[in-house]
Design a protein around this nucleic acid. Structure first.
Lengths: 351, 351
DNA sequence: GTTAGCACTCTGATCTCTTGATTGCTAACA
DNA sequence: TGTTAGCAATCAAGAGATCAGAGTGCTAAC
């Protein structure tokens, strides 16, 4: 059997209707709203075909039809028009004026959640390919050392570590220079253990301290790779969709958002997948597909953003399976391009 | 009518039973489990009295009784024994080894949520009375300045600002010294505008830059006061309590946790109140009392912690009205004392 | 290929009935 | 005077029973 134009129109009508209402769609409704001018009986015949072909499902004998996963997939991949909606001005305004990266991401994720009415997440950029500008040391109190790592894009990481000896100001300065000679200009993942051991030798009597510092820097890098921060917003939006509202599902989903662990895995997985594919990397995971396996009734839409210099991150929206995919995809495309612009405007300066 | 011993025992039995089960308690149950050896008929008479006095309520004619707010209050204030439970070893272990304040707080709040099975929150310490050790400046790229503010207790704040002129290394150093002369050793709230303007005069040709720096520092302080970070955990625990599980209530509560704004107000309010009272500042807010006014079915238990040097913060637990107050109060006392110990162990060094 | 008509199915809302828990009252008892 | 047994009354919650509405599939006619 073939999927002719008429069947496609009917399928589309069913899906659109179902996305809006969440109720199974009957033949009569389609007969009225598809624009085909066919009686409900004819539609019924076609629907019977569509069901046989696996695009739609009947929850029970006397109900209308709802899209199957195959149906959704077809819709997302083939039928959906990419409308070019206007950029909401709010987005543009917002992205312009925020300069602190963390703030920017927090606001963006909130915007995304509010715009779409689903749950949104955004991962901090991966910094492993990002170069070190310099490391700054100082001693806030005896036997303590404050490390400040400045990366390209003016991203700052700091940590206080304990050391064995009590260093005077001058020694701290010297160590700073020594270490910077080795590591500045490198990307985080270019720092090798060998490099670091050679450094230890150079630092002579302070080699123990140098080792501590090196370990801490390695740790900062490690931490970044393993657990980059994830910002979320709008988890409670799921209460707007009755099919996700029962205690069990809601609790699962919101726990996932609260605990972050699951989200980290998700981000990990998504960024791996989409690196292979290149491109904008917009991805739609339906129902239990891919990273959302244990959330049967949810779908996930993801995209990658890049802030130049290899600072890549992931944006995602989680909502009910019957989410407004068009709108979500649009909003995300929009956001990414804004992010791109905003970054290019702010950066491009190196010392 | 007087609240004699027998009535108190009965009231206590009712409340304990209700806290466990969440079901109204009938006369027959009490007759069996109160240890009073009275028939249900006698208990009924007493219950009738207790109801008249306002300590208990009958949800409907043929149901048992549940505690009224007055009953809860009485229980919390008067009846409850403070049991001295043992410190769970987990707590002790955990508190020992974490050195980064943020990590510590995150772990503590999680522990609190897991231990109690309610939603927990903990505010970062207020830093306004905390002294500045020093300010460190450096220039990560042209027309940018990185400010690092080191406070007592080795708390680090950083910010990158844009400036008008392109400063060389030496100038940055000089400015650093100049500013540190003025502000180091002061607490955040001791920095006055006057002080800062005098500084601007001293900095001569770089006064514009000095002003930017000053503004940024003021901003960092401001930000801290207005919006100190709040860590939360266990918001989804509320799904364990059927009376909070309906979409409406759950959504409200979890939104509050997600958006933080409401929590900030709450922390604000609580820390004001309890400063007046002094002491451990353990507080129980029932039902709609105090800061939880729009959560009719929830109770809030709060406490203050202090890490020396005026670094004060708030811990809180939100759960159903019928929460296990004893356990929660115990856990919180415990946590506060652990926090105190841990801090004393780690600190005490100034340079 | 399309349509009208009709019997059939299933859900969900509504109603009734029953059960069980609990009370309040009264009268008897210590 | 306080305590208790007994009993009628009340109510919520659950189990069936019933009914309307929505929708389908099939058949026969156009």
């Amino acid at each position: 059997m073939e999927l002719d134009d008429r069947k496609i129109i009917i399928l589309k009508t069913i899906i659109k209707n179902y996305l809006e209402t969440g109720e199974p769609v009957g033949s009569r409704t389609i007969s009225k709203y598809s624009g085909l001018n066919l009686s409900s009986a004819t539609i019924r015949n076609e629907m019977s075909d569509l069901e046989e072909m696996g695009y739609i499902i009947q929850p029970h004998t006397s109900a209308g039809r709802i899209p199957s996963d195959k149906g959704y997939r077809f819709y997302v991949d083939s039928i959906m028009e990419d409308s070019d909606r206007k950029v909401t001005e709010a987005t543009e305004l917002m992205v312009q004026r925020v300069d602190k990266l963390e703030m920017l991401l927090k606001q963006l994720v909130k915007l995304l959640a509010v715009d779409t009415n689903y749950a949104a997440l955004i991962s901090g950029p991966s910094l492993t390919e990002n170069r070190i500008k310099y490391l700054q040391l100082s001693s806030p109190s005896r036997y303590k050392l404050l490390l400040i790592l400045v990366l390209e894009g003016n991203i700052i990481k700091n940590e206080v570590i304990s050391i064995e000896e009590d260093l005077d100001h001058e020694t701290v300065m010297n160590l700073t220079i020594l270490i910077n000679n080795v590591i500045s200009g490198l990307s985080l993942k270019e720092i090798t253990p060998k490099m670091l051991t050679s450094l230890m030798v150079q630092s002579g009597e302070h080699s123990a301290t140098a080792k501590s510092i090196i370990d801490a820097v390695a740790d900062m890098i490690e931490t970044d790779v393993e657990s980059r921060e994830i910002f979320t917003s709008g988890a409670t939006n799921i209460f707007k969709y009755p099919e996700l509202t029962d205690a069990d599902k809601a609790s699962k989903l919101i726990s996932a958002f609260e605990e972050q662990d699951a989200l980290k895995e998700l981000v990990e997985e998504v960024s791996n997948i989409s690196e292979d594919e290149g491109g904008s990397g917009l991805q739609v995971y339906l129902g239990g597909e891919g990273p959302v396996r244990n959330m049967q009734d949810c779908s996930l839409v993801t995209a990658n953003y890049e802030l130049g210099d290899g600072m890549r991150g992931v944006i995602g929206v989680i909502g009910p399976k019957r989410m407004d995919y068009e709108k979500v995809l649009d909003t995300m495309k929009n956001l990414i391009s804004q992010l791109d612009k905003a970054y290019k405007r702010n950066d491009g300066d190196t010392r």
